[in-house]
């Protein structure tokens, strides 16, 4: 597989505390990669190592097949979780400064800022000071600054915290578009639902160890439990329930519906086919709802973490 970033056996200790223990992660080119983990798992340390803010104790990071070099900061765009800007500096001036630190010339930076500011409709902020903007507005500016130098690798640490839903959606679409244009995106979060929405690949870090990684769809498939949620209107309820209980593992289903159905969660054996179940149910009841329960990333996360404790 063609990986843009390869992190090989990264270890990092702070005093007696192990922040990362032999973590290896491969990020495929032009994908959105979700780095998951609870607070304090080591996500930020890992990201800081990629950004060369922190040096690993052992292990190597390769970008584009070559070991990471100080000049690679120009190929990486980083939006940290703890982000802010100079309060008393003007928006335009500040954006120019930060873009030039990434190696753009003044003219280049100005041209691209023009493009982005127009695109996000924030051009009239140019001469405003950051302290005059709201938090969400400042975050938009930070987003522009992160992507301005057209990095190969974009790293977003909790990108949606602090955004209102409208702007969060706007930024989400920009992120998707950036991937279309060839960028690879590393996306760190402890909010699982955003991973489900956006990510192609994911890795799970817990207490300094990588617990699992891979394609999101593969992981989900591997974690599926052959469970189906059904909403039925049985012809003979007590008899049906009895039969079901003797043949399957039955649980309570929690989905919502407007019909006054009997809601069940039915687990079949891996060898059995869902078609057989459906056929059986049709003969005994009116079926309003029949859905395979696909484990959410959240479920996988909790399951994996508890399994490892």
């Amino acid at each position: 597989m063609d990986n843009l970033l390869v992190a090989d056996n990264i270890c990092k200790q702070f005093g007696n505390f192990t922040a990362l223990n032999n973590v290896s992660i491969n990020i495929p080119r032009e994908s959105i990669f979700g780095l998951l983990g609870p607070n304090g798992a080591g996500k930020t340390t890992f990201i800081r190592i990629i950004n060369q803010i922190t040096m690993p104790d052992s292990g190597m990071v390769y970008l584009d097949g070559k070991p990471l070099h100080p000049n690679d900061v120009g190929h990486i765009g980083y939006l940290p979780e703890e982000r802010g800007l100079y309060k008393s500096m003007k928006v335009g001036e500040q954006a120019l400064y930060l873009a030039r630190l990434k190696g753009l010339t003044k003219a280049e930076a100005k041209e691209r800022l023009e493009y982005w500011f127009t695109k996000l409709d924030i051009k009239h902020w140019w001469d405003k000071k950051i302290q005059e903007l709201s938090k969400g507005m400042a975050q938009k500016v930070q987003f522009v600054i992160t992507v301005l130098h057209q990095p190969k690798l974009l790293i977003f640490d909790e990108p949606f915290s602090g955004f209102d839903p409208v702007n969060a959606d706007l930024i989400k679409n920009e992120i998707l578009q950036l991937r279309e244009e060839g960028a690879t995106i590393l996306f760190s979060t402890h909010r699982m639902e955003s991973v489900e929405e956006l990510c192609d690949y994911m890795a799970l870090i817990h207490e300094s160890n990588k617990l699992l990684d891979g394609k999101v769809s593969d992981i989900k498939r591997a974690h599926k439990t052959n469970t189906f949620e059904v909403g039925i209107n049985p012809f003979e309820e007590s008899q049906l329930l009895e039969e079901l209980h003797s043949n399957f593992k039955i649980g309570q289903a929690k989905f919502k519906s407007h019909a006054d159905d009997l809601k069940l969660r039915i687990q079949i054996k891996p060898t059995e086919s869902p078609n057989d179940l459906l056929q059986y149910l049709i003969t005994k009841s009116r079926v309003n709802h029949f859905v395979e329960v696909i484990p959410s990333v959240n479920d996988i996360f909790i399951k994996t973490v508890t399994k490892n404790e």
Binding site: I53, Y78, G84, L101
Partner: peptide, 17 residues
Amino acid sequence: IEEKTNRIIEIIISSVK
């Protein structure tokens, strides 16, 4: 201290040493 409390520091040190 200003850079720290502004939280701009991490943005800058991802570009410079």
